[in-house]
Design a protein around this nucleic acid. Structure first.
Lengths: 234, 234
DNA sequence: AGAAGGACCAGTGGTCCGTA
DNA sequence: AGAAGGACCAGTGGTCCGTA
């Protein structure tokens, strides 16, 4: 109802036919304290073997004739494929400089998803149909149909743990506080999500689930080595 | 762990190459007080248009040569495709006569499914993987692998509401008490299932969901016609 | 080099319908 | 005529990787 048109927070900055811009070598380094999940890389190997197929090329909104490119193209007119600006870390209230979006905008998208879920739930209840408790494909479809083309499943899933516990660092670091909470709560990350006011409607990211599992085993090994009580700290 | 071999309760009566047996015209009649779900038949129509494909023929366990049928066949030796005896309504403790299975056996299957689910859950928790709360395809696969070949998804889903509230009648009638409970609880059949000690691990059958929806609308219409308070009886 | 997201894919929930 | 269940199918959760 309220979120029908394209979103105002970011849309004036939507990149269309993004011009080459200077790449500042981001200083976050590569060697991940949090990147390595023991035993997870092996399972991913077989998937890499597949997917050698050619992708379909989707030519979006091309209304001009082929071989003819002197229309009102090249500037900002010809509607090429749009995609949103990359996210950068900002403080609450801070506006992202350059062609970037800040965290306020990211979190705003999560709030919109919640609204869309509630609408889907209300429709389902009215019809006596199955009622989703999480943001499902159905909800993403509904959002897109409602005009929120900038909401998509890979993006929202990608950052969801940052929505739960943002610490001013960024993606990799955002896992850390959630793992720490899981450690205190018996490693039940699903229950933690379901009890969280914002995370409850989101599926637990596989990466976070794996981190909790790895960390649990590490913790159990070190605590049993030191002779502490197993599994239940106190 | 405990339910590995073929089940003892019914297996001695498993029908193999079931001989033609006299069909007693069952006296339950056809016109359904509970069969008609208003507006549901229309949606099912488009599915009937499809599925005109030839099915694969699965020749189970045929070890004898083709064209050669004088082995130790015909009696009870040649392992033809097995299927379980049909269920009939029995009282608790009553043994089903003839080539039939009683409700004790059916309910025993539901208990086995619960056991299999618990085992799958324990494995998932140990591995830090997603942990199912309901009897999923994964659980049925696990049951089959564990030797419980007599457990299958269509059968268990078919009778699940009878497991919840058996009244001594049979399938159609078993919906009635659950709909009555739903009426008293604000028509939230999912919550009723989740709160039920035996039903919690099962998906709500579509049919039951539709019956609750239809009945809710009927109740709402009649109560508003009589001037009563809407939706919330008292 | 790094990020946004279209599109793919294995396995799901649901149940039809060829079979006995 | 009525029931058991193999097998099918649309749409799911999950995320890869061609793209900008």
């Amino acid at each position: 109802d309220t979120t029908n048109a394209l979103d105002a927070l970011s849309q004036e900055g939507l990149s269309q036919e993004q011009v080459l811009q200077e790449k500042e070598a981001a200083g976050s380094g590569g060697g991940g304290t949090w990147e390595a999940v023991p035993g997870a890389a092996a399972a991913a190997e077989k998937k890499k073997q597949r997917r050698k197929v050619q992708r379909k090329l989707v030519d979006v909104n091309r209304h001009i004739d082929d071989e003819n490119e002197d229309d009102d193209n090249g500037g900002s007119g010809g509607t090429e494929r749009q995609r949103e600006h990359p996210f950068i870390v900002t403080e609450p209230g801070e506006v992202a400089r350059g062609k970037k979006n800040g965290l306020d905008y990211l979190f705003h998208l999560y709030e919109q998803c919640r609204d869309f879920l509630i609408q889907v739930q209300n429709i389902a209840k009215e019809r006596g149909e199955k009622c989703p408790t999480k943001v499902t494909n159905q909800v993403f479809r509904y959002a897109k149909k409602a005009g929120a083309s900038y909401i998509n499943k890979p993006k929202m899933r990608h950052y969801v743990h940052c929505y739960g516990e943002n610490v001013g660092a960024w993606r990799q670091a955002c896992y850390k506080p959630l793992v720490a909470i899981a450690a205190r709560q018996g490693w039940d990350i699903d229950t933690i999500f379901n009890a969280h006011p914002r995370l409850a409607i989101w599926y637990v990211p596989t990466k976070l689930r794996q981190l909790c599992h790895a960390e649990r085993n590490t913790a159990a090994a070190s605590s049993s080595a030191s002779g502490g009580g197993d599994q239940l700290p106190f």
